[in-house]
Simulated assay, not measured.
Amino acid sequence: MLKDFLKKKKRYATIPSERAKQEVPEGLMTKCPSCRTIMYTKELDKNLKVCDSCGHHFRMTAYERIDSLLDEGSFVEFDKNMISKNPLDFPTYEEKLEADRKKSNLNEAIVTGKGSLNNLDLVIAVMDPRFRMGSMGSVVGEKITRAVEYAIEMGIPFILFSASGGARMQEGVLSLMQMAKTSAALQKLNRQGGLFISIMTHPTTGGVSASFASLGDYNFAEPKALIGFAGRRIIEQTIRQELPEDFQTAEFLLKHGQLDRVLPRLEMKETLTKILDIHSS
């Protein structure tokens, strides 16, 4: 009887060896932070980083976003080697910039360029939160302005995907000036009859949400994206009221008239193609 008990215990108490654990390649599986579903990373990538179970939108890098939308081989990047300096001599800023360049393989928090979507020409700008949380410094503002000016010159639409923590504190007022600079460029595009489509992704906050991200002829956002200016806690302390649970989400903004549509990523390419086609004619 004791022998049977020991056999049974040994059978059900087996712990996988370290060798067995190491045989599972790192990055093979991804767990959804929303519904906890575990899926193959390759399948998630094929689904444009959208959870097939609950629709959670994972973050995309700038180049992943561009590859998911534009015609293969059509993208030509602008100002790739433009990098930030340290005009205010902010302590450790240059070291942090260099660390972000190595981590993200980007020179700045935005990628701009021209390309085509289903043979419709456009200029595109995509922010990447891996670099300084997508914060808006002088280079980000300059690259957006140059991209808008190119769209004006060529008479083609401008599409911008924002993802940002706001203005970059290490550049002080120089960063804040980019709000006016980019807004002025977009006003010029508007006067010329150009088309600007703004798509806010998670998160779009601070000076970015208060400037160019909210100035589109069409203002879209991905589902459940955080969009706002100041933080929730600061607003509650200022107005001394408890805010709704869904406050500063894309769905809340749509309900209150600040967005034209909450646009799921899997519908993005088809919807943008229709809009570009309408305006091209």
Results as ranks from 00 to 15, higher is better:
A184K: 13
R168A: 10
A185W: 03
T182F: 00
P157C: 09
I156C: 09
Q178L: 10
E171K: 09
S183Q: 07
M177I: 12
Q187P: 02
N190R: 13
M177V: 11
K181I: 09
R191E: 15
Q170Y: 08
L189R: 04
F158H: 06
I197L: 11
G193D: 10
G166K: 01
V173Q: 08
L195W: 05
A167G: 10
M169E: 09
Q187I: 11
F161I: 10
E171A: 08
M169D: 06
Q187Y: 15
R168E: 08
R168C: 07
S183L: 07
N190Y: 14
F158T: 01
I159N: 04
F196R: 00
L195E: 04
A180V: 12
Q187C: 07
G172D: 06
G194I: 00
E171I: 06
I156T: 06
L160I: 14
S183Y: 01
R168P: 01
Q170A: 15
A180R: 07
G166M: 01
G172E: 04
A163Y: 00
M169G: 09
G193A: 12
M179N: 11
Q178G: 07
V173D: 13
R191L: 14
Q170D: 14
M169R: 05
L176E: 11
S162P: 05
I156H: 04
T182H: 03
F161W: 02
S183E: 08
Q187F: 15
G166P: 01
A167C: 12
I159L: 15
Q192D: 12
K188W: 06
M169A: 15
P157H: 05
Q187R: 15
I156L: 08
A185M: 01
S198W: 00
M169C: 07
S175T: 02
K188I: 11
L195A: 04
F161V: 10
M169S: 11
I156Q: 01
A184H: 09
L195M: 13
S183C: 05
M177R: 11
L174W: 03
A185L: 06
F158R: 06
I159V: 15
S175M: 04
Q170N: 14
M169T: 08
R168I: 01
M179Y: 06
G193N: 12
S198Q: 02
G193P: 03
A180H: 14
K188Q: 11
R168V: 00
A184S: 13
G165K: 05
S162I: 05
R168W: 13
G166W: 03
A184F: 13
M169W: 08
M177G: 13
Q187A: 12
Q170H: 07
A180W: 08
I197D: 00
M177F: 09
Q178F: 08
T182R: 02
Q178S: 12
N190S: 13
K181Q: 11
L176C: 10
G194L: 03
Q192W: 09
L160P: 00
L195R: 01
